[in-house]
Amino acid sequence: MTDPRELYQQVILEHNKKPRNFGKLAPCTHHAEGHNPLCGDQLDLTLVVEDGVVRDVKFEGSGCAIDVASASLMTGAIKGRPVAEAEAMIEQFRGMVRGELDPATQTPLLGKLTLFSGVRDLPSRVKCAILPWATLHAALKGEEEASTE
């Protein structure tokens, strides 16, 4: 079993303290609220999508460091990307933290986001890392709410 402390790497701590893309886009083209009933983590995600490309994205909310850092790094990673690519990243991220995809070879789109791969050994925290991505998935599908229930 991984030591939980290994997950709290500098990058995660730093993004938790100073989250990027924090706030709300108004107007926006896509919006969803994410909720993790286990932790009470809450996330509000707004996007501007034009011509099939994520032009801008912001998030608001409160949660644990894993959740906030995941949202901060996610928003940075998808900004400027085609929606199709963002959707592929959702699948890769989910697969990685659930231990189904190997970060060394099977998640080429994730780049430095592979630093979340350690969560797979902390089942109780997988949902925290996934919440922003589940919320993104809901927003892109035109759903208002996502839950990691």
């Binding site: 939980p4 932790c39 644990c64 894993i66 902390l122 925290r125």
Partner: peptide, 14 residues
């Protein structure tokens, strides 16, 4: 202050 209880919980677990 500044640390979510779940992070405290995970770190204590460690």
């Amino acid at each position: 202050d500044g640390i979510h209880p779940h992070d405290v919980g995970s770190l204590l677990d460690g």
